[in-house]
Design a protein around this nucleic acid. Structure first.
Lengths: 135, 135
DNA sequence: AGATAATAAGATATTTTTATCCTAATAAAA
DNA sequence: TTTTATTAGGATAAAAATATCTTATTATCT
């Protein structure tokens, strides 16, 4: 479903949010805490930063963090920033045409999934979604 | 979610099932009908055949088809045959530990999905699942 | 101003997935 | 028995994803 890059991105943003208020966090720090290869996470963070999904400051005491604006964006923006598109817009079996009228085999099942996962991801802000304890 | 290989496999098996009773179908034929690169589909069919998910006969008039046994296997076997494991057993965010007690961020959403898609895929036979018109 | 600690960015390497090609083996038909 | 149409299988190629390394740039502290 998600690429490793996207998985890492989501997990890192969650961590960033839950450790907000502390000083900004360096890639080295994040990579260690989240058990992600450091240089790879560095690449991902650059991409997220360029896409405006996270913020950063350079220099001593710098690092990555989430601004108020960052927190107000829907989580799906993170996915789009990494993957380049909304992965959930595509047919689960890769058909070019797949809709309620012209469904693939698994369309009806996948639709339930979209209703339950993709909707909150697409609508709710990062803060709303990630701050609530999951279960 | 699924790799291209798996998507192709599922679509081809669906086609095979719906054209059962006709003569066996060649890779060339299937690739053309389903718009899949022929040599790539060939590889996939070999793998499925070796895994016992589909059947084949060589020589003139030969081709691929589904035996009664093939039809009675759950669709998840196709996924396992291609991917090497059940992709749905893994955490959507790639956590090593992810359960109801110790859930990742998206665990509760993903769980709904599993209930709706993975359950039928894992339990129902290929014939039951694919023969029914979807929607 | 200089040293330091951090991100930014580009070049490169590795691995996996996807795709292609070619030859061998097989089975049926002529 | 020869030809033909097919799968089987191995060798290889191309592309994408994943991972690493190195250097440049920047901001803060001393």
């Amino acid at each position: 479903m998600f690429s490793n890059s996207t998985k890492y991105a989501i997990r890192t943003i969650e961590y960033l949010l839950n450790h907000h208020g502390d000083e900004k966090l360096s890639v080295a720090n994040l990579a260690k805490e989240l058990d992600i290869p450091q240089p790879f996470l560095s690449k991902i963070m650059q991409q997220l930063s360029k896409g405006g999904v996270i913020s950063s400051t350079k220099g001593r005491g710098g690092g990555f963090y989430l601004s108020k604006e960052n927190m107000n964006r829907p989580l799906i923006d993170v996915v789009i920033c990494i993957e380049g598109y909304n992965v959930f817009d595509k047919c689960i079996l890769g058909l070019k045409e797949c809709s309620d009228e012209n469904p693939c085999l698994l369309h009806k099942y996948y639709k339930v999934f979209k209703g339950s996962l993709v909707k909150p991801i697409g609508q709710d802000s990062i803060e709303e979604l990630l701050r609530t304890p999951s279960g």
